[in-house]
Structure formats: structure tokens, C-alpha cells
Design a protein around this nucleic acid. Structure first.
Length: 429
RNA sequence: CGGAGUGUAGUGUAACGGUAGCAUUCGUGCUUUGGGAGCAUGCGAUCCGGGUUCGAAUCCCGGCACUCCGACCA
């Protein structure tokens, strides 16, 4: 967003329809949804279903940009699979029947036919690529998409951490053989690490061994440590490797070379996971290629997911404080929050307006609190919304020829001359 | 899907079976102007459907919704 010179990215708060609230809704216990609703980032529609308001959407898009960047760097190719799914396709892999998959949302066409709403993408990709993959020259392939996913969960909970409708990134790997698959699998571990670091929770997110399914001993989860978590993991703090409770056995610990007495039990949120699919889907879809010798071989698949809403919620759980949200610079809805204090001196508004225009022209993403409200309310709102850099424009500052800067993360305060403010703020672009 | 609980203005809360009140938000006017100011004034609500009763937010039945615990999952 910030490097697009043709799109000036500033917002006057008087034009932002969302408003902050002193109190969270009573039917929302989770910290993430409570704060995000209070700050006007999301709106609850029903259990497990949230709309994203302007500020929330901006955060979501930044997270999306980070993930896209990392996926593209390891060879991902973005596309978009449909949300409405064809029954016949899912019957091939035996995942249409409600007795097999009980969290489908299904609906009927006018002519009586059935369709399902996507709850995952293996079938969609396998079915599409069947048309295009026929030679070893066509592989490997790493398509992915960002998409809304629908799961008829018996119980949604924890705000945006577990919804019935959620937005995710799903990448699938289509490899010629196990070796090629493994190499890519290892690359995604690094890409995932990068994503969580860039999103601000890298130091609390650990690669975790979890149950694997029929094609590999383990799958791998990325677990972010927080008491709000639903999962229990056992972490070796030295190596940064963890084991999910579901595979926490003596035998497995030994195979991973982990000592039981060195592990600490932690609550964590699964913010991403990757797993090997082997030929589970290439077989029913007859997804094969011809190798150099002209032999037909089954494609080896892998799956790599991240729930964006869940990631956003996890970041809120981990980074927010008693005053409200605290966004890392990388995903903050805006980088700078200009807070203009009310004054009879018209110079205050003029100065704030001018600063806003200057910063926006420089390509800084700015939210400008131009509202006709008192200082206390503005400061509290600013804390709640959690933009990294606050610039206060006041009569007091103007007399001194200075702007007051306050950093949301650590509360650090500094004064800057008008000429220095651009350089300072540019660090946060 | 099992268990528990809760549904009152936009939001948060009160009301023994008897005038639906308070706070905040919002509108208007005045005062105020560096951490959710003050005064005045106004708008705005009992989840839906039945039943009991002279009378129901309140009691009973049914439905729906939401929250929490469990089972299940990005």
C-alpha cells in the first residue's frame, strides 16, 4: 500500500464511521473480539461470523500482503478457487457425504442439484490441475489462494480465533516425488517462520510436531504461546521445538531427541500448519504425470494453511495491553495517528491539516483525528486503536515549534521540530 | 452434538407480578479545552410465538439467538 504513489493513503477520523466504545459487548468474552469490537475493527454478525470494518480490513490486508510476499518467494502462484463446490468433484475423494465430513455448509440449486461451500481446497486444486499437469515438465507447482472458508462448526468460540466463516491462505504443493516434496516442505517452514516474525509474533511462535495422518509421521503446526490458546504443547525452549499434546508420548519424544524433563507445558494457538498429503488426493483424481521414461507417476501433494483472522486475533491476544490494541508497524492499519487537540487558536487546526497533507503526500499512512472532541477522549481512543506512532498537534507544541511524539508500544515520548518529523516518521513507512 | 447459563434503547446495566429507570452514545444550546469535562434539554428498549393473570420484562410452555464447559477443528 505504502509504495503506491498514486494512492494517497490517509483518513480523517471524522469520516471514519466506526466509533470506539468504552465497554465491550457482553456476549463477547474473548479479549481479541472484545478489543477489536471496542476499537471499531470488526462487527459481529452471529456466532463465529464477523464483518471487517475499514480499520480491521486494513490490518487483514497487510497480513495478506506479508503472506503473499513469502509465498511468492518460495514459488507460490496465486489464484482463486471458487467458493461454491461441485458435489461430483468431492465424491471422487469421498468427502461429500455428511457422514464423512460433518461440517459442510451445503445448499441447493434451483434445479434441485446440491452445492457445497468450500471448507478446504484439496479437491478443487486436484481437479483443476488434472487438466493441466501431464508431464514432468509441468511440475513442481505451488498454487495458492486467499479465500473465505466455511465450516459448520458445532461450536465456534474465542472471537475471531475460531469462526464458521474465516479467511485463509491455502497453498498446495504438487511435486514429482518425495524428495522434491520434502525440499519444498522445508522451505515452507522457513517462509512460515518469516511470516510470523514479520507479523510481530515470531519470538513466541514455535514449530510444533503434531499428528500426521496416513502419509507422514507428523504434520507441523506453528503454535503461538498465549494463555488464550486452545492447544497444549510441550516446548523445548532451547531448541525452539515443541510437541503437540496429541503426540506427546515417550516413544515420539525419543524419536525427536527431546528430553521430557526439559519440556515446558504451554497453552498456544495454532496460527498455521503444514502437512504432507502424499497421494491421498492425486490418486482419486488420477493426477499423474509422465516422467522422462514415459512412465505414469502419481503426483505427491502437500498442504500449507494459515487462517488470517486467527492470526490477527492471536496478535491481538499477545500484543495488546490494558489500554487497548498495540499493532506492530508491519500490520498496523495506519502508521501514524495525528491527534489534533482542540484550541481556539486556529493555527492548531491549520498545522495539523498541513502535517496530514504532507505526510500523506510522502506516502505515509496516516489516520488524522480531526474530530471536535476533547483531549482525554482522543488520547484514549488513540491508545485503544493502537497505531504505532502518535503525533500530537497542540497549541502548547506550536508555541514551542514542536510536535509531541508518543510510541504506542512502549509509551516513549519525544519532541520533534517540524523539520525533523518527516525523517522520523519515514522510519515507520 | 451433550451439559450449564443469559436474552431490556446503538452500548453497558436496573426494575417484588402493578408508571420500563440509570449511565453512556446520539441530537440541540451554552460553558469548557492535554487523559473518556459541566449544565440544560430532547430522541431511543423488554428476542419471537403461545399460556397463566384484572395486570407479565418478571411466572409457565415452545421456538430462536448468544455465552461458557465438554467433544471436534485453520
Amino acid at each position: 500500500m505504502s509504495n503506491n504513489k498514486y494512492f494517497l493513503d490517509g483518513m480523517k477520523q471524522s469520516k471514519l464511521f466506526s466509533k470506539t466504545r468504552k465497554e465491550g459487548p457482553k456476549d463477547e468474552v474473548s479479549k481479541n473480539a472484545n478489543l477489536l469490537i471496542r476499537a471499531g475493527f470488526i462487527n459481529k454478525e452471529m456466532a463465529g461470523v464477523y464483518s471487517y470494518l475499514p480499520l480491521g480490513l486494513r490490518v487483514m490486508k497487510k497480513i495478506e500482503d506479508i503472506i503473499r510476499d513469502e509465498m511468492n518467494m518460495i514459488g507460490g502462484i496465486e489464484m482463486k478457487t471458487s467458493i461454491m463446490q461441485n458435489k461430483e468433484v468431492w465424491e471422487k475423494s469421498n468427502r461429500w457425504d455428511d457422514a464423512v465430513v460433518d461440517n459442510w455448509f451445503k445448499t441447493k440449486l434451483k434445479n434441485g442439484g446440491e452445492v457445497g461451500l468450500s471448507f478446504t481446497n484439496e479437491e478443487a486444486y486436484s481437479n483443476i490441475l488434472k487438466q493441466y499437469v501431464s508431464s514432468y515438465n509441468d511440475l513442481p507447482l505451488y498454487p495458492y489462494d486467499f479465500k473465505s472458508i466455511f465450516r459448520n462448526e458445532a461450536r465456534s468460540k474465542s472471537g475471531i480465533l475460531r469462526g464458521r466463516e474465516f479467511y485463509w491462505k491455502a497453498l498446495y504443493s504438487f511435486s514429482k516425488d518425495e524428495k522434491e516434496h520434502e525440499e519444498f516442505y522445508e522451505k515452507t517452514k522457513i517462509a512460515y517462520k518469516n511470516i510470523f516474525s514479520r507479523a510481530g509474533i515470531g519470538d513466541l511462535t514455535y514449530l510444533t510436531f503434531a499428528s500426521g495422518g496416513s502419509f507422514s509421521k507428523f504434520s507441523h503446526e506453528f503454535q503461538a504461546i498465549t494463555n488464550a490458546g486452545e492447544d497444549t504443547i510441550y516446548l523445548d525452549e532451547k531448541s525452539g521445538i515443541a510437541v503437540n499434546k496429541e503426540v506427546y508420548t515417550d516413544e515420539i519424544l525419543e524419536s525427536l531427541n527431546l528430553k521430557k524433563d526439559k519440556l515446558v507445558e504451554k497453552k498456544a494457538i495454532e496460527v498455521g500448519n503444514i502437512f504432507s498429503l502424499g497421494t491421498r488426493f492425486s490418486e482419486p483424481f488420477d493426477l499423474k504425470y509422465k516422467n522422462e521414461k514415459g512412465e505414469q507417476k502419481l503426483v505427491i501433494m502437500g498442504s500449507y494453511g494459515i487462517g488470517l483472522g486467527r492470526l490477527m486475533g492471536t496478535i491481538v491476544e499477545i500484543l495488546s495491553d490494558e489500554k487497548g490494541l498495540v499493532w506492530p508497524v508491519s500490520i498496523a492499519p495506519y502508521k501514524v495517528h495525528i491527534v489534533e487537540l482542540l484550541s481556539n487558536n486556529t493555527k492548531v487546526k491549520e498545522t495539523a491539516e498541513k502535517l496530514f497533507e504532507t505526510l500523506v503526500k510522502e506516502g505515509v499512512e496516516v489516520l488524522y483525528d480531526d474530530r471536535d472532541s476533547r483531549a482525554g477522549e482522543k488520547f484514549n481512543d488513540s491508545d485503544l486503536i493502537g497505531i504505532p506512532v502518535r503525533v500530537v498537534v497542540s497549541e502548547k507544541g506550536i508555541e514551542k515549534g514542536e510536535f509531541e511524539i508518543k510510541l504506542r508500544k512502549d509509551g516513549k515520548v519525544l519532541s520533534l521540530k517540524e523539520n525533523d518529523i518527516l525523517d522520523f516518521v519515514n522510519q515507520y513507512k
